[in-house]
Computed example of a mutant assay.
Amino acid sequence: MITPPLAPDVLARYPGLEKLGRTATRLHPRPGAVAATDSHVGGPLLWPADEPWPTCVTPYMVQEEVPIPVELVARMRAAERGRRQSHILAEGEIELHQEIAALVGPGFVGWGSRGGGPVVGYRYVPRPHLTPNPMMALAQLRAQDVPDLPRPGGADLLQVLWCPFEHSAGPWGPTVELRWRREADLTDLLAEPPRGEVGTDGYVPRQCRLHPEQIVEYPYPEELPEGLRRLVDEQDEEGGDDDEDYVDTFMAPGWKVGGYADWSLTDPHPTPCPRCAGPTTLALVIDSSERGTGRWQPTRADGEPDHDPYEPTGVVVGRHGALRVFVCLSCPDVPFLLNQQ
């Protein structure tokens, strides 16, 4: 896969931006059979036979329905009819919402009905795994294939596993394990990993081959020096058919290793190491889609447009967002931090 280069005049609009460029490797996952010796999404791992397979013991979240008394529903409907404008709550509605939330209990996320059935309240509650749940292989990345892969302690292989249930610890979603290895040390391998239970289909990856491509991207606007940030704001305000959105132009979408983090949903916030509180490095972005449009629409090596699936891995994170893995390369055992956008 090949990303078309920037137009010659694009960087010239932002004097000084070029020196802030940082390489990242777009992984370009596409469905296909893979082997344990490959870099991939959703395939078998080079796993030592004498090393226990990781399991998850963190309680997962399940949705429960709590019946709401008919008279409380009637009071709520009556209050709604008293609105002067449909989007502005009537007097007493806030108190009724609070009454429903108290009735439903901890974990309350809303109320409603399905298919014309009775009105119920919804809440998420933790439930323990009956037994430790074997994690699922999500990805394997080899430094030989992925030039921007960090290499802590000389590692040249990263394996990512997760528990495919919703959890509330950290960002809402799967629990995650990382394994950094030296591929040359792996000789006696596990033939068949244990299989665990699955709670969310969107956390089960399709097997995908990777087509790594190293590109250059640039910082999120609010992480730019003040002068450049003002210039970006001015360009965005001017708009016009010939102007492209800064993020869409300078920050790669999809699965990638390295580069800069896109903070479009939450604005930037610190990502300190959970152990030493020092800075971390963006190691991996696990995205729900490749969103390869416009500037980032890749072409194949033969020059033809790439028309492979918009969501090749089948993985859906959060509300169709991305899970980012930040690692501390200064601490032993490479502690990591998860962030979801």
Rank of each mutant, 00 (worst) to 15 (best):
V62K: 10
Q207E: 15
A301F: 12
P253H: 13
A33D: 12
Q214K: 04
V120R: 06
A78M: 11
V10P: 07
P69W: 09
G227A: 13
L282G: 03
R22Q: 09
P106Y: 14
R83I: 02
V232D: 01
D267S: 15
L186V: 00
L224V: 13
H40N: 07
I68M: 04
R30H: 11
A102F: 05
F165P: 09
E197M: 12
P279W: 00
P335G: 01
T3V: 11
G314F: 04
Q207H: 14
A169K: 13
R84A: 05
P44W: 09
L329R: 06
G107C: 14
Y310E: 14
L189N: 12
T187V: 04
V204M: 08
A139Q: 00
Q214M: 00
A101I: 01
P52D: 05
D233M: 14
Y60I: 06
E238S: 15
G321I: 08
H28F: 12
R77L: 15
I215T: 02
L190E: 10
E93T: 12
R142Y: 05
R22T: 09
P164R: 06
R319F: 11
V66C: 00
E80M: 11
W162N: 05
L72S: 03
V334Y: 03
L190W: 01
L158Q: 10
R195H: 15
G112L: 11
L228Y: 02
Y218K: 05
Q63R: 13
L323R: 07
D148V: 07
G318E: 00
D156N: 14
R151K: 13
G258Y: 00
A7S: 13
L45V: 09
E51K: 05
I94R: 14
E213C: 08
F326K: 04
L89A: 14
A12R: 12
L11I: 14
P118D: 09
R81C: 15
Y14K: 06
T58W: 02
A12Q: 13
Q297T: 08
Y124K: 14
V62R: 12
